[in-house]
Design a protein around this nucleic acid. Structure first.
Lengths: 142, 142, 142, 142
DNA sequence: GTGGTCTAGACCACT
DNA sequence: GTGGTCTAGACCACA
């Protein structure tokens, strides 16, 4: 599983992990029943402290995306696919709506908004090549 | 000046004030040379701690959007219109790009994204350009 | 607020804090709108690490019993009274049902169960004098 | 022997096995001198890891409920009946007392407690004394 | 002052 | 091996 974490971003690192795992499940990169990397493994991969990873995993379990089998590890829940997808999209939809509300409040017309959105859609390629967390961390080591 | 602040939102309150003032200037609701409400006035209006308002005002001054006239209060800078507009749009553009990147990472296709954006644009209609009552009875500062 | 914590018990300490706060709200010892002791204060009172207290408080917030006002502290939610009461009773009812199921599975008749329950009810006085956590910690310092 | 184990429950799986075996002996479903299923058999029946079953059996042996006959397997001790019964009831009594203490701390009166207990007793009727099918086709160990 | 995040490392129980 | 809990202490943003 490819996880991207940016320790310099404003969002908490543990939240980034939560989002990344949800995204990975939402796009089908991990399937129900599969295990997700152990806390220690993920911590080693991302160069993060195990506690930070554990906090993210606890949140994923709380949301019903994964479940714990004691002594064995964490596994993707059966119904995690649609669940992760819907959760992630609700979050993204909320962000989108807040964005639009703020943009309009800043005086942007709908036409202007559409133009900016189209330009942003064009400038970010639809399939950015995945980069591992370890790699991205090396490039921006805080 | 009509300021909307939500203490429960994830964004810091002082940042919300900064954004709201910038937006008000960007959309022309408040013009260069006009005064903005005093820290105390704004704190009373919004039920916020004066320290929080003061921090927001410091930030606005730091960005050159407003300037202090000793003993008189804070005034909107001459060049504040374009400045506020460009600053606000840079921030919004950044958010937009991050949003698109995350949505794609969650497995959304460009077509899906466009559909959701259109739907969000339709469901939040632009604010009516008429000024609110609160806005029209703009107070002199201090 | 009187909080009892037993570090030697099988239940995690942070969970004991959650239960104790819920109980305090359920029995009316803290009222909606009131602040609960700050993380640092509670940590000092209970001789626990602030992180442990913070973890408990996070859970209480997640359940909607308390809410955070940034920079100010944690406050009991308006609807926390009934909420804490119902949550706590659901938990206790679950325990009760599991207890009865296990007892029956161990071969106890309903009559035997009733006898044991009556005897247990009699031997624990209805109003045990409150003892502070600090006190109980001193008596059983691990 | 019919063993019910819930891997998702809060109690450790090995402890559930211990309790289930004790309960089976306590209620007379399995008699002194009889063999209990081998570790492998029980592991296969319950889909659990043999190590987990072995740990449970070690605990049962430590408590004197069962004993090992080298090369033959594990057998229920002669005095196991009363022993299992008393052990199990001590544990259940402890739970009961803790339950009552916590319920009172949450503000429940003795009258309320009695009402809830009566209701819980009524809604979970005692298990029918008839042995289950699985139990009746008890297997010889190994 | 407040809570939130993160790191570091120890210990534990379970499988 | 696994996750969970707890301690300790640093740093940060916010009010």
């Amino acid at each position: 599983m490819m996880i991207r974490v940016d320790p310099g971003a404003s969002a908490p690192v543990f939240q980034q992990i939560v989002n990344e795992v949800k995204s990975a499940i939402a796009r089908g990169a991990i399937m129900p029943g599969e295990a997700i990397p152990s806390v220690r493994q993920m911590a080693a991969d991302t160069l993060l402290n195990p506690n930070t990873v554990a906090k993210a995993y606890r949140e994923l379990e709380r949301e019903g995306i994964v479940y714990t089998r004691r002594g064995l590890g964490l596994f993707v829940a059966e119904r995690a696919g649609p669940l992760a997808r819907s959760r992630r999209r609700e979050e993204l939809d909320d962000r989108l709506r807040r964005f639009i509300a703020e943009a309009r409040r800043a005086g942007m017309t709908t036409a202007e908004l559409r133009a900016r959105i189209e330009s942003a859609l064009r400038e970010t390629p639809p399939e950015s090549p995945a980069r591992t967390a370890a790699e991205s961390l090396r490039r921006a080591p805080r």
